[in-house]
Amino acid sequence: MWDYTPTVKEHFLNPRNVGEITDADAVGEVGSLACGDALKLFIKLDENKEKIVEAKFQTFGCASAIASSSALTEMVKGKTLDEALAITNKDIADFLGGLPEEKMHCSVMGQEALEVAIYRYRGMDIPEHDSEHDHGHAYPDHDGVIICKCFGITDSFLRKVIETNKLTTAEQVTHFTKAGGGCGGCIPKINELIAEINGSVVEEPRKRPEKLSNMKKMQLIQEVLEKDIRPLLWADGGDLELIDIDGSKVQVAFRKACAGCASSGNTARLVENKLRELVAEDVVVEEVAS
């Protein structure tokens, strides 16, 4: 059973402001039946169109999705649109006395619906989503690219959630946004995003050099491991150590969380792909014990 706070339970059992506003000034809809939760938020402004006087919601989802929606409608009342835009998903979770980490995506959904509603009201362009499996995340600054194909989640959205909530691991990102929770294929990309946001600057895409002397090759392998690969592993609490380079054969040992990790085979492939991309096509990575 989930460890919900009394406030979450209260807002789930007696949700505030359920329903529609037929003459709403702003409506924001996110999510879909396919992905298991969806929220439609209705906002009514005062005569001067300055402050929110009424907010209602319709939610399909679990107890924490319903409680987050209820909390959101209470929080925005009396606020100007700019004040409402300043509400973060963390504020919603705090209002409820906290949410289990696995349920944080419910608070993110609330914050998202609010943003969509306000941006729509302000006439900003919001892309339409039509795919059945699309989570319907809509962002005006939506020049982002899809990172998680299973849930249709873009890098710009992930960037924002990672920054707001100071997330440091891919698992957290999954709990907050669902990204990475389907096939898991985008987890390396999520790790790259985290590493980038948390300070390890990823430079312009580099190309591997056309020709390399053995000496240069060894230097470049070491450089890529230090600058590109280890920071990714640190983000997941892991690490690696370079053991030896013999021509194109690179031997590494995994450390910390990576050591003995069931997916270290995948991590080895990740390292190999990165080295092939940036050093030479024929690099082979071998995991060695020690």
């Binding site: 359920v18 969806a38 929220l39 439609k40 319709q58 399909f60």
Partner: peptide, 8 residues
């Protein structure tokens, strides 16, 4: 719950 759901 259906009353509450946008797909209700």
């Amino acid at each position: 719950l259906r009353q509450m759901s946008p797909f209700g």
